[in-house]
Design a protein around this nucleic acid. Structure first.
Lengths: 246, 246
DNA sequence: TATGTCCGCTTGATAGGACATACTGCCTTT
DNA sequence: AAAGGCAGTATGTCCTATCAAGCGGACATA
């Protein structure tokens, strides 16, 4: 019983073949054509069906295994993971995440300055003494309701930042448009209770629970572009992720 | 100026060649032989130096790029990421994490039962009506200081669980010894303020900040093996991770 | 009938080649 | 001298091939 994937591979597309396969199988899983727990045909047959070589097919399946949609067992086969897999934590800003989910986030820029970096910031961004950074705090709302209070520091030798830019789109979007290719980020997630200031800004009461995130992002040239400290209302936000065993 | 990696590849070892290369380069980076920001030789030369084929070399470098230790740019080359990369969030238990860091964790089993699963648990573990599960709560301490309060549910058709087992080692260790091969887990991290019970157990005061984690783990046969809800003292624990852009 | 061995199926690992594409820097041209 | 094009280099993609290793069922034997 071969499962018909009905994928169409466009060899003239600039999209790599293996990635077209990834997208096709992802779509098949999400639309239910491939049911959770069902077994796929073996790699060689699948490659033959799509007129691809086995390594290309394997590369596609590797990605799907890494993202947790498939599990492979030698000598047995490959099957669709039964549970619904969440998207992994993306290297994107909260703004993008919310927009992608159909929400309409807004941003209030509370403070904005262009100053000499203090010691912790210099260390986080690997900057020399006397270097300048943008420093700003923003309040992110969804549907008029405050969700996150964000304080960030960005090195100033990349692209000019203005209050207007930050008020209209996400930080990562601004930086990407400025030519930054993010490669990785280190982040730490914890918890605190809201102080007076945070409670006021987030429209809650002092003593309520907040999720905290500290993040430093690195671009493809190895520069530490941005570091920040964010707090989120715990009743409105949590970090969800999928871990895959290597 | 070729950098001499001085890797020795053992072709008779059962460890795959590409993984030996991964380990070798990881070691070189951690010992400082490869400095942050330095460029590696190109793939073809490296493969030649180690008497490997280019695909094998690429597979090794792929892993290192994925884990965030290297960045590659087409037409330019591959370089060591400047910032120190933390270990990614592993699919392991808190007990293992602490042990690996040299700590000596202890576990108090507060409650332990073998009951019929309630509705939320049946849904989380994809169990039929009337299925039985182990249900237990544990208190994890380090150096006598309470760190985490953990409540878990485990399906009972895998391996027998006892209070004694859970008191002496981590849950994941017990399950792995029972033949479970974990493949992935979905988890959600948030925050709450401690209630009276949590505060008492964790030796803190009601109203202090706690980090929460809910997790469901899936094994290589697609079974949802374990689900749980943990709370950690926010002053002693946070989740640290590295995100890599794909 | 029960047990142990073997074989076929499937994924895992490795090799080597060919061509595509992006980036850098040099060289030519204006 | 500045701007544009071109060549070199490195990674990206894709192919054909081959052997290794784990798993499960079939088959033969005690």
């Amino acid at each position: 019983m071969a499962n018909q994937l009905n994928l169409s591979i466009d060899r003239s597309s600039p999209v790599p073949l293996y990635h077209q396969v990834v997208q096709g199988i992802e779509a098949a899983i999400h639309t239910g054509i491939l049911e959770p727990g069902s077994r796929l045909d073996n790699e060689i047959d699948l490659a033959a069906q799509l007129n691809l070589s086995r390594p290309t097919m394997r590369k596609a399946m590797d990605e799907l295994v890494r993202s947790g949609l498939l599990v492979r067992k030698r000598g047995v086969g490959t099957q669709v993971v039964s549970s619904q897999v969440r998207r992994p934590l993306e290297l994107s800003s909260l703004f993008d995440d919310l927009s992608n989910n159909g929400a309409k986030p807004t941003t209030d820029v509370l403070t904005f300055s262009h100053d000499e970096a203090d010691d912790p910031t210099r260390e986080a961004l690997h900057l020399p003494r006397g270097a300048m950074v943008y420093h700003f705090t923003r309040l992110r709302k969804v549907g008029g309701k405050p969700l996150a209070l964000m304080e960030n520091w960005v090195r100033d030798d990349i692209t000019p930042l203005t209050e207007e830019l930050l008020g209209s789109q996400g930080l990562y979007s601004v930086l990407r448009n400025g030519g930054v290719n993010f490669r990785l980020a280190t982040q730490r997630i914890g918890a605190v209770v809201a102080n007076e200031y945070q409670a006021t800004q987030l429209d809650t009461v002092p003593g309520s629970a907040l999720v905290t995130m500290e993040r430093t992002a690195v671009d493809d040239t190895g520069r530490n572009v941005e570091t920040g400290h964010h707090v989120y209302r715990a009743d409105s936000y949590s970090f969800e992720m999928t871990l895959v065993q290597r």
